[in-house]
Amino acid sequence: MSNVTTLQIYRGDNESGEMVEYQVPRNPGMVVLDAVHKVQSIHSPDLAVRWNCKAGKCGSCSAEVNGKPKLMCMDRLNKYPDDATISIRPMKTFPIVKDLVCDVSWNYEVNKKIPAFKIRKGERKYYQYEADRVQEFRKCIECFLCQNVCHVLREHQLKDEFCGPRFLVRVAGLEMHPLDTEDRSELLKNELGVGLCNITKCCTEVCPESIAITDNAIIPLKERVVDRFFDPLGWIARKLFKKT
């Protein structure tokens, strides 16, 4: 193993910037975030990066490493060839604040639109098999990598019309909660724009928590909306052949 790693890191803001090359010493087990920290401590203390837990639990250190959306704290350097230069850029879908930090505040605004959990009256018992389905969605650490790769948001920038996979996962966690009584199908169809997802599964591929976003969250929500608002014949057919 070479004892030096070469990095190219985006330095700049939303208007202008450049890839700057740094070399840092390499220790066993190092992850990309460690290398970024070394750049801060050796070369450039003002290099901006978000991070918190460094254990894959908080979802703060999302970036694009060699073009792939990743949590930098879970990306081992030894997965790359020894002599490779590792390039690190901020997430492309959001405006850049500085260096690797981008403005993700849009996500927090979207979250406010989703009506809260509303518990049913009376009995609260439910079983683990019911919890399992919802717990998958509640594993989400809000790293926003799914938002970053969703082409509706990334290429088409339809942020006013589509809430993105993260919030479809959140709605799925509420809608499928065994004790919840709120109906969010109208919101899904209109404001959250579930119809805009065309199931390319890019979100599922990048999820660090391995949530089956498309299959387990988005498709069932699309079906809910269809059942509720469109195509009564289709509704009957699905009931008859029970494909889900």
């Binding site: 978000r50 918190n52 837990c53 254990a55 639990k57 908080c58 979802g59 703060s60 993700v104 927090y108 650490i141 809000e142």
Partner: peptide
Amino acid sequence: KSLLGKAHTVM
């Protein structure tokens, strides 16, 4: 200090 939802409690 951080974004909402990232505090140490998540750990």
